[in-house]
Amino acid sequence: MILVDIGNLSFQELKYLAKQEGVEDYENLSKDDLIDELSDIFDIVDGSIQLNNRLLSTSGQRYVNSLSDSATQKEVKDLPGVESLTELYMETSIHFMLSDLSWGFAYWSISPLTKAKLLEEDETYLQNVFLRVTLTNNDTNETSFYDINVDKDDTCWSINLSDLGCTYQVSLCVKNDANIIIALAQSIALTVPLPYWFKHSEELESNPVLFNSSFSSIITRQGDYKDTLVVKSVMTKLAHGDNNGKY
């Protein structure tokens, strides 16, 4: 990152800024006058900038002019300020998304601060990182959970969702050798529906017209079908049912 004082901006850039900020007669002002005008506009006071009634200590380095080398006027190749993407962000969090009705994907990070605190408390915590998947049945509100052990260097995981009709939440947890568990972060809760036809496939088995108006729509003329857990299950039930070859 290259930071420069407003006084280091080129005359052209100062004029550009002045135009943007609505400075009157900016085209006829000298460079020094432009700096004065812009300093007033941007409330540069003793090297600090006033922003929303808070003083930010910036040593007057308000504007960044970084794409051209002012000495040679050559373009700087590596854009200053364009940081390459970090692998992890300095935060402790976990995010959870649904891949389909039987798989989810979670990614997480543990901030250096959190790690330091855990190490300070008990260095065995970071040896036992795991994901706690909590599922709540949407009908009965019964809650259960299962744990997935992950390596301390893992940062993402595909999670098998064991039951349909549940709401899932994933917690990023650690535990020490004394089995004391700390939940570091919790994902949003996502609901996996229990499809009606999964529960009532017998209705499809006994009624070809009903089957035709619903599940035949995801079967191609070659007999291939959309390969999902739910479809597989319905198909398996149908295959084993006494449908007299109606399909």
Binding site: L9, L51, T58, R62, S66, S68, L79, E83, L85
Partner: peptide
């Protein structure tokens, strides 16, 4: 994403990269 980061990092320093 990197372009977004330019704005984010600059704004965190209360700066605007005009040429960029």
């Amino acid at each position: 994403l990197a372009n977004f980061n330019v704005v984010y990092s600059n704004m965190c320093k209360n700066a605007v990269n005009t040429e960029w």
